[in-house]
C-alpha cells in the first residue's frame, strides 16, 4: 500500500514541478505582459496544487494534511486575486499609453 502512495507522490510532485518549470519558462519567453501573467498563474496554482496533492499521503498526521490543504487554498485565493489586480494594472497602463 505504501508503495502505491509513494508512487502517487512521485507522480504528483513531478507533475507539479513540471508545471513550475513550464510556468517559469512561459514567464520568461512570452511576448507581452498578459500572456506572461497567464503563464505565471499556471505555475502558481497548478504547481503548488499538485505538489500539495503529492505531499498529502506523506503527511505524518491529520493536522499536517489539513494545514497542507490550507496553504494550497491560500495560494489559490491569493494567486487569483493578485492576477486580477496585475492584469487590470497592466491593461490600464497599456491602455493609458496608447
Amino acid at each position: 500500500m505504501t508503495l502505491l502512495l509513494d508512487a502517487f507522490t512521485i507522480v504528483a510532485v513531478s507533475a507539479g514541478t513540471f508545471f513550475f518549470v513550464a510556468g517559469t519558462v512561459g514567464l520568461l519567453r512570452f511576448p507581452d505582459t498578459l500572456s506572461r501573467l497567464h503563464a505565471l498563474t499556471k505555475a502558481d496554482n497548478l504547481g503548488v496544487g499538485l505538489i500539495v496533492l503529492g505531499l498529502l499521503p506523506q503527511a505524518t498526521s491529520l493536522g499536517m494534511g489539513i494545514r497542507l490543504i490550507g496553504v494550497w487554498l491560500l495560494v489559490q485565493l491569493a494567486g487569483a486575486t493578485v492576477s486580477q489586480l496585475l492584469a487590470r494594472a497592466a491593461a490600464r497602463r497599456n491602455g493609458a499609453r496608447t
Binding site: G23, L27, R36, L37, D44, V75, G79, V82, L86
Partner: peptide, 8 residues
Amino acid sequence: MAAQLLGS
C-alpha cells in the same frame, strides 16, 4: 509577477 513566482 516574478516576485509572486518567488513567493509561490
